[in-house]
């Protein structure tokens, strides 16, 4: 019972942060600012959701696999984000600074 409540809270939190990431992806003004909400999804969203699943699965091989998925996501997502941002900068994409005039 307690297990169910804890996992429900974790999954609800994860779902919330995943959605925030999606909203941010649509709302933010330029590419570089969009990277930040995407990283909310990748860390908090995925972390809470998978932890919620782990609590639901209990001590079993399923939990081990969920941990592996989480560790893998946490190792690869910053690498992918860094590669994206680096490539965009090299390509000459200018970060938005919020200035209405002057800035190119």
């Amino acid at each position: 019972m307690v297990q169910d409540i804890v996992s429900w809270l974790l999954i609800a939190g994860g779902a919330f942060f995943v959605m925030v990431g999606g909203v941010g992806l649509v709302r933010m003004p330029d590419f570089f600012t969009r990277l930040h909400p995407a990283s909310v999804t990748d860390t908090m969203g995925a972390g809470l959701l998978l932890t919620g699943f782990m609590v639901q699965a209990g001590a079993s091989l399923v939990t081990v696999k969920l941990v592996l998925i989480l560790v893998f996501l946490l190792f690869t997502s910053p690498t992918a984000a860094h590669a994206l941002a680096h490539a965009a900068l090299l390509d000459g994409l200018k970060p938005w600074t919020g200035k209405k005039d002057g800035a190119p």
Partner: peptide
Amino acid sequence: AALLVTIALALARAFAGPSVYDRVLAVNS
């Protein structure tokens, strides 16, 4: 449901672009 909604939002970003990097970010997401 939350994941599907988010995928739809990211898909909107993938279509809207404007740069190719926005699209890659959306697809990665």
